[in-house]
Design a protein around this nucleic acid. Structure first.
Lengths: 213, 213
DNA sequence: AATAATTAATCAATCGATTAATTATTTTTG
DNA sequence: CAAAAATAATTAATCGATTGATTAATTATT
């Protein structure tokens, strides 16, 4: 059945995503992936055409999902700070509930190998980043944000802070004193704390009229 | 001669560091590294005992350098905000002038493979992170910083922002409109802009008494 | 009966590492 | 100081292991 086949493909994608995140692209062998997914190694080639095809399929799955969310936010008519805070919440939710994929993304971005693949990934992430920049720039332009704020750097701070918590999870755990890799800890402790921090910091920097040097 | 030998070893380490950063640990083969360094493949094993030994040597080189800097900052007696800003500058200088190593570090931190190696790396980075946290916590304690500031998250924002600029260089370039991988651009544009941004943002969040919800 | 799905076995290529042989450099010795 | 002995450095060739991929045969489904 087509339905069963799709379920099996999704299952493989799920397992593969986890293994790629934990072991890296080269580190996760097709033998390991197929074994973990409980399928024959040849099925990976049968379904996805090969290891690269499997890897790409993982990205394509997420690209489709993310595109919809972006378009929704684009069309809302709310204040700049509300938009930005909505953005902060959205990305925190998305990134925190999908740590494995985030790890893959940022690791892939830091390589210069597999350039065709890289370009696809970067064009995806750049959609997100440029959208956030647009919101901030708009806020600066319409006077609701500090005039000499650096939109590019703020984008870096937003995504950088979140990816640091996720990618350097073992570091973060050591820093905070609890297990940042534990999903329930992430949901109940890390995520709200992260959201609160970024919102407060961005608000202090962007809105309150203070004289920094 | 011992001196010549050390020079050759350093040369190999330099080349290997670049290749590991560009291609990843698995992606950079010993054949590739030895060829790029202009030495026979067997020399890597002769000098470093193998690929892992070579990889470790790169870290040990940097560990030694960083330890000294950390101890110096520890012993200075200046205000909390001065210490923090000095920290921001120091890490910006270090990370920006050594992008290759930073890429390796953060990629390694996001893996769960090679655990003995990972622990060494994490313990090194945690030294830096905990030092920054200590400075911020001290500032909160002695009343110079905002009382409800989140020290852990600030550390994540500091290192996260910087590593985002470096690791997601292609993204940053697309965002900012100039080549973030170009050393002279980094030195004259990116580095000062990054320093300024973090200092201003941290100052707004930590010092100016504002009422964020 | 025909097509799709699945398996086990095998392919060539590449990996890191090692070997044995050769060359270069010290060190010892006369 | 030079010849010889000893050690260090370097090379080319090869090792077994693992990689992703493919094949041909088998089983399941339509």
């Amino acid at each position: 059945m087509t339905e069963e086949r799709q379920d099996k493909k999704d299952h493989i994608l799920e397992i593969a995503e986890k293994l790629f995140a934990d072991l890296g692209y080269d580190g996760a062998s097709t033998r390991h992936i197929s074994q973990a997914a409980g399928v024959n190694m040849a099925m990976l080639n049968y379904y996805f055409g090969g290891k690269e095809g499997l890897y790409l399929s993982i990205f394509q799955k997420h690209v489709t999902q993310q595109k919809i969310k972006l378009e929704n936010l684009n069309n809302e008519e709310i204040s700049s700070i509300e938009k930005l805070e909505k953005c902060i919440d959205d990305y925190a939710d998305k990134m925190m509930s999908n740590c494995a994929f985030q790890k893959i993304i940022y690791r892939e971005m830091s390589l210069s190998q597999r350039s065709e693949l890289n370009k696809k990934i970067i064009s995806l992430i750049s959609l997100n980043a440029l959208e956030v920049k647009r919101i901030i720039s708009e806020g600066i332009k319409n006077g609701s944000f500090n005039q000499d704020a650096d939109a590019d750097m703020l984008v870096a701070s937003l995504f950088g802070t979140k990816s640091y918590i996720i990618n350097a999870a073992e570091m973060s755990s050591l820093l905070m004193g609890y297990d940042v890799t534990n999903p329930s800890v992430i949901e109940t402790v890390v995520k709200p704390r992260l959201k609160n921090h970024i919102k407060k910091m961005f608000r202090a920097y962007l809105i309150n009229n203070n004289e920094n040097n």
